[in-house]
Each structure stands twice: as C-alpha cells, then as structure tokens.
Design a protein around this nucleic acid. Structure first.
Lengths: 228, 228
DNA sequence: ACCATGCTTCGGCGGGTTCCGAAACATCGC
DNA sequence: GCGATGTTTCGGAACCCGCCGAAGCATGGT
C-alpha cells in the first residue's frame, strides 16, 4: 500500500483523529487522557496509540507509570492543519467548543487562528522576515526588533526548521511555524500578552485556546500594528 | 465525525488513494481509467468515485459516454502532496516507476520535484516574487522578467490563488503553486523547455513525469540560474 | 508487604466497508 | 435499429478493523 493511503488511513479513523487533534497544540498527553478524548476504553486506545507510534506520527516518552505522547514533529501538525483546511464535506457543522478556536490557539507550540495569520502577514509585509529557500529568514531589521522584544533567535535557529509556513485550518491562510514561530509565541505567553484558557480537561476534546490580555492587545498594536 | 477523520478516511482507502495519485498531475481521467489505475472492477470504482465526488475532492465533467474526473481544486493537490511528504512509515520502498519522479513532474498543472523546488528558491531568492499576506506577489522586476519570458500574468491573476506554496512530497520543500505556478509551467512546456514523457498508459499507475530538453536546460540556466 | 493506578496483551464479538458478478442504463458508430 | 462500449445500480459474500472485558504486568504510594 502506498505511503499516502497508509498515513491517511491512520488519520482517517475517528478515534485516532480525535487523539491527533488533541495533540495538535503540542502538549504531551498520557494514554489515559487520549482514551478519554477519543471516548474509547483504555484497551482500544492502547492499540490505536500503538499504531500511531509505529507509523511515526506520535512519539512516546515513558515516565514512571505514565506514558506521555506527543506529535512526532512539526510536519505532522502542519499536515493535519492542511487536511483540516480542506473544504468541509457536509454542511458546515460547528466545532465542539463553538468558534472560539478561530481567534487564537496553539498549533504545535506556535500561534494559530486569526491572530496567527495576521501576525504572519505583518511579519512578511513589514519586512521582519524575508523569503529564503524552503522557508523564511530574519532580516537585519527584524533581527533588531525581535531582539528588543526578547525573542530568542539563537534557540529558534537550533530548531530543525527555523521558520516556515503552516496552513491554518480555520483561516485557510498560512501562519508562522518552525523554531521562530515557537519562540515568538513563547515570548508572548511569557510576557502575558496571551494567556491559555480552558486548561486541559480530562474528559473532553479540546485544543488550547488562547486569549489576548488587554496589555497584550496594546502591545500587539504597538509592536506589530495588529488591531485585536 | 470530524472533518479531519472524514477526509482522511476517504484518502485512506488504497483504491481511492491510487485514483487520487493518478489525478495529481491535474489531468482529467475517465471512470474506466481510474478503475484500471486502482486495479479494481468498474462497479467498485464507480462507488469509490461517487464517494470522492460527494466529498468534494473530485469534480466530474460528463462528455458523451465518458465521464472525466479531476481533482476538485488546487488545495486538494496541495494537501495530498503534504501528506505524501510525511516521513515514510515502513522502510523506504521504491516508487512504482523508480525515482524518476523526483527530478521533475506535474502537480496540479504546476512544476514539482527537484526542478520545482529549485525554481521556487530562485524566484524568491532573486526577487522575482515577494511575500504577501497568504502567498506571494510579483515584484516590479519580476513583472518585467516574466513578461519577457512570455508568462501570462493576467491569466494567472484570474486564478483564485495567484501564487502560494505547495509542499513537495519528494523534496520536503515548497514549490510554486497557484495561477502563477501554472502559467510559468505552461510557458516552459509551450516553449519545449520541458516535455512530458511516459504518456498515460491505460493500465498502470503513473504520474506525468517531465523531462528537461537540452534547450530547456540552457534556458533554465540563463534565465533563472538553475543548473540542471 | 499491600493495594491502587496506569497501561498493555489476549480472545472474541459485531459493524462497517469493499469487492465482484449480473443486470440495467446511456451513448456512439454503423 | 442494432451491437459495442462506457458507466451505474443492485444484491450478496468476504473480509477487515475497531471495540470491549478480563487478565497480566509495571510503577508508585502507604
């Protein structure tokens, strides 16, 4: 069977798809949490997780009697977002938690949603970053501005992908991915421009939604020209 | 069922996946050709095609006693390429036609493969195109150079997406997609820089491979600085 | 040492899906 | 009109796959 069919079939099962969506924000979840998210028993979940791990879509980290699972890489998250960005099959159904996801959320540790694509547009349009083979590089001007904001570019550069596009499933436009995306988002959360809301419940499917603080709204407008 | 699982399940069936891969170059195929590509009977193929059409992945055009099928849009092709770009599950198996696909091939009417990503890198690196919200725009310099090469930018702009990235499955780096990608590739084929090889056989799975003519190699080097 | 918790393996059941052959329908060429 | 070709619908059979419950193993707390 071709690689395409193999991978797609793995994602195509409702239980596994629910698990993958729960892992999209980049956090690591235990087998039990994944079972609850997929609404199946521990035994069934174990089998599904095993399949995902063997396929290389999910990575495991055993710690004590817990086993933490996360997406195996950024490309996986990007591929999932791309798939979700395809036109809805059936008449649009609302998402579990309403449309709150569209504003701002995490996708593999980087910012997604309206705020994410808006940021991407500003960074490219205002010359913070420039096109490079296979992704983006930071311009001299961007280097200075990122530095002043406290974005750790050195750490970002150690990432296998420094900066590239990830198709946003709700906006159908790219947002910033890669090490740079992670560091920029980390800076915003560290400085309390963004806060995580709806912390991980144990029995519901959720993606980490983000909320913009009043201070964050001011900062985003001042630094990037984004009107929240 | 979530949209993610629905779509992935559709792609996840080996027969349907074979059909979709056969449609990737952008050509329209009849139901019978799709059946042969998937190596199933006409009856089974008809059912699978129906599912793909109802999901909006494939579009149909009835003409006489034939029904021509093509991918419903560029995003579909991009999503398929992205999925194929994920790390191979099992130890790398060779593709049906060897590795010939990697050099140059068509992906939804635009250039993919090594030549495709190389072109993308040159266009962005040498200032033909520049980043814009949601994709790329042509610079003033690019406008002139494209015009001299006979690329129809007006037609390209009428496309729903003018220029955006498509993740190349064999190179794992983006190539140029959208109307601009289509027009540039069309120009190259029209001027015989590239020729299609292995015309569509009726009983095998194939993607349209492209070969670079001697004249094309010279032109690519002269115009874009690409060493073929 | 003992029990609680988290996770995995095993056996078996049930539902869903895919396939084929036969038949019906549509279109083209003679 | 008639046969040939392309495509779809129908019915039935086979198969795959995912789920659960029970049992087993590992880890951590008391």
């Amino acid at each position: 069977m071709s690689n395409l069919a193999t991978i797609a079939a793995l994602i195509g099962d409702p239980s596994r798809a629910a698990m993958l969506q729960a892992l999209l924000p980049g956090e690591a979840l235990t087998a039990g949490e994944l079972a609850r998210v997929a609404q199946i028993g521990a035994a069934a979940a174990s089998a599904q997780i095993k399949a995902l791990v063997e396929a290389g879509l999910v990575a495991v980290h055993a710690q004590g009697r817990h086993r933490y699972h996360r997406l195996a890489g950024e490309e996986i998250a990007a591929a999932l977002e791309t798939l979700m960005a395809l036109p809805q099959v059936s008449p649009r159904k609302s998402w579990p938690h309403g449309d709150g996801f569209r504003k701002a959320r995490l996708c593999w540790h980087h910012l997604a949603g309206q705020l994410g694509v808006e940021l991407h547009a500003r960074l490219t349009g205002d010359g913070w970053i420039a096109a490079a083979p296979g992704g983006w590089l930071v311009t001299d001007a961007g280097e200075a501005r990122f530095g002043k904001l406290g974005v750790d570019l050195a750490t970002a550069r150690r990432s296998p992908r420094f900066a590239c596009d990830c198709m946003d499933w709700s906006e159908r436009r790219p947002h910033l991915s890669g090490g740079l995306g992670r560091e920029v988002t980390g800076m915003m959360i560290r400085r309390l421009w963004l806060t995580r809301i709806e912390p991980l419940a144990t029995d519901t499917l959720q993606r980490r939604r983000l909320a913009c603080t009043p201070e964050g709204a001011r900062a985003l407008a001042a630094e990037f020209g984004i009107a929240a």
